[in-house]
Amino acid sequence: MTHELLIAQTVTGDAIVLRPGGDIDMARAPSVRKAVAEVMRTRPQKLIIDLSSVSYMDSSGIATLVEALQHAMRNKMKFVLVGITPRVKSAFEISRLLGLFTSAPTLEDALRL
């Protein structure tokens, strides 16, 4: 049985937008980590993670995003989360890590940052 996590990627100006879908949990976080690492190797000025299609995220997913944020900061890239759904927001809030991230309600807002 396979559960490939679909991760759409688009380039808009100087930003790359990654849009994972489905649940990001222990089973699926490695796919997201791999996709983010591949994009970061291209050194975009801005990486936007669009979470509007992510209905669930556990600490594996959060850890993946913290790792990506730290990498972005070291490499002076902008790293923005957009479209955080209520359940994903709860997971960030209980982890007390949401404040670490730059976030925007919509993709248009994120592109303007």
């Binding site: 600490s59 850890a63 730290q70």
Partner: peptide, 18 residues
């Protein structure tokens, strides 16, 4: 410790908080 910002190690905190 939540001040220790690093990937991983959150699971037990989430369980206890919830």
């Amino acid at each position: 410790e939540l001040d220790d910002v690093r990937p991983g190690g959150l699971g037990v905190h989430i369980i206890r908080e919830t």
